[in-house]
Design a protein around this nucleic acid. Structure first.
Length: 474
DNA sequence: TGAAATGTTGGGGCG
DNA sequence: ACGCCCCAACATTTC
């Protein structure tokens, strides 16, 4: 019996339920389908396409090592998969479930339209969105009780190894090349991304190992310091399913159990809580599928967002005049990733200081993040804007100067990404406009020439944001 | 996983 | 010795 394994956002062979399912049945035809038409309003963004290209290359190599190969096709699933099943003599198509509205619609359509049986397995989350319910049998909208409920279910089952080998079908269907999908940008702006990342399953395991050997020990504190290598940097690997959340969960909770050091225990515990934020985001997306386009809290539907293309552009390019914000936006542009603490600050700045709609921020992140994930991106932006699940209240407005002084006290992060400010002394590096003329001159900074003056004044912007929130509630 | 404004307390300077 | 004021430090309230 021949089974098609349709790889989607689960680009690994380790702990991969569909692959194990297929290997048990007999011959396996692994396929990746490039189908931007199936993604609705959210086709894979530019930075993520770069990642995908390399991840597919890695997956093809992993499958080859198991005696198999990766078939590449493009087109809508509903058009390609049934034909491919006929072509390869497969009687079952199996995949890992996805949770985005467009992806779920594709699954629903396939379930009714296939000549072959269509099976979607749970392989990308620790807890199925439908399995976690409030006392009233509804979905959660607040993280803490959601996470408590997850923890009460007990830990996820142990991850499973990849099959030792995969049997080939009697005839292999034709395949395109990965290159023919044209995922890489035509202009080579991805050099700095290549030096920051190793996409693919091997890179994912290396990142996990490095985290366990290093940052997890101080994660509870260093995760907030953007200049430090204090985070796991697993987000793109998790998004693309190059590592299963079960694998990460068990590796970290084993480290927690083995360690006698309370700091390490706290760090590991904190990381598990972060994995549950990812679960929570998917839970919310499944139960409130309108949220990528509209606020969860209906009263925000009429929020008086400003349209200001010039300000949006300054934010995107890292030229707001607020060093921490600009450093974050430049890190994003250069590496396809931004430290989470800084994501909160830049998001708050866009929606509160500039009063630009969170959708514009979500869209920019979608195109520039290698870990762009509809569930996480939507939750994060609605959190920042105050209109989502467990959201920051309207009055919680980050002061980018204070955040810089608190979490980047020596300005290391700012100097790394905003080199024109590198020579400023620590006490002015987060607020160059406060520096005396002589200090600016010595540092080689002409405000408005080498580095922009602030595009909004903090106190005035804060008052304006509070007033706008008032207008919403009346 | 906020920041600013306002309130309270207590030590020290000083008449 | 005592009361008054100032203000830093901390706590609470407000947005």
């Amino acid at each position: 019996m021949t089974t098609i394994v349709w790889f989607r956002q689960d680009l690994r062979v380790d702990d991969h339920a569909p692959l194990l399912y297929a290997a048990e049945r007999g011959a396996v035809v692994p396929i990746f389908l490039w189908s931007p038409e199936d993604e609705g309003a959210w086709p894979v963004g530019a930075a993520a396409r770069w990642w995908l290209h390399h991840s597919l290359t890695g997956l093809a190599a992993s499958l080859q090592a198991l005696g198999s190969r990766l078939i590449i096709r493009s087109g809508r699933a509903i058009d390609v998969l049934p034909a491919l099943a006929r072509e390869s003599g497969a009687d079952v198509i199996v995949c890992a479930r996805r949770y985005e509205p467009a992806a779920r619609a594709v699954e629903a359509a396939l379930a009714g339209a296939m000549g072959a049986a269509f099976v979607a397995l749970d392989a990308s989350l620790l807890h199925q969105p439908e399995a976690i319910r409030t006392g009233g049998n509804g979905p959660y909208q607040v993280y803490t009780p959601y996470a408590r409920n997850c923890r009460m279910q007990g830990g996820p089952s142990r991850p499973r190894l990849a099959p030792a080998a995969l049997a080939s079908p009697t005839r292999w269907p034709a395949s395109s090349s990965i290159t023919s999908l044209a995922l890489l940008p035509t202009i080579n702006w991805t050099g700095s991304m290549a030096s920051a990342w190793t996409p693919g399953e091997i890179g994912a395991r290396a990142a996990l190992t490095a985290f366990l050997d290093g940052a997890v020990g101080t994660y509870a504190e260093s995760r907030d310091i953007p200049a430090a290598p204090g985070t796991s940097r697993l987000s793109p690997h998790l998004h693309w399913g190059e590592i299963s959340p079960r694998r990460a969960w068990h590796a970290v909770s084993d480290a927690l159990r083995r360690s006698g050091d309370p700091t390490t225990k706290r760090g590991a515990e904190k990381y598990l809580a972060e994995l549950l934020w990812r679960e929570f985001a998917h839970h919310v997306l499944v139960h409130f599928p309108h949220t990528p386009a509209a606020p969860l809290r209906a009263e925000y539907a009429s929020f008086p967002w400003r349209s200001d293309l010039e300000a949006l552009r300054a934010w995107q390019r890292g030229r707001t005049g607020y060093p921490l914000v600009d450093a974050g936006m430049r890190e994003l542009w250069a590496t396809g990733w931004m430290h989470n603490r800084v994501r909160m600050v830049v998001a708050s700045f866009l929606v509160k200081h500039l009063l630009i709609a969170w959708h514009d921020g979500a869209r920019w992140f979608w195109d520039t993040l290698v870990d762009a994930d509809l569930a996480n991106n939507t939750l994060g932006w609605q959190w920042a804007a105050g209109c989502g699940a467990d959201a920051a209240p309207y009055f919680r407005i980050f002061n980018p100067v204070l955040q810089g002084e608190k979490f980047d006290p020596t300005g290391t992060y700012v100097r790394r990404w905003v080199p024109e400010l590198a020579l400023l002394p620590d006490r002015f590096v987060h607020a160059p406009w406060k520096a005396p003329a002589a200090v600016l001159e010595r540092a080689g900074v002409r405000l408005g020439v080498d580095y922009p003056a602030p595009i909004v004044e903090h106190t005035a912007a804060r008052i304006r944001a509070l007033a706008a929130a008032d207008q919403r509630s009346t």
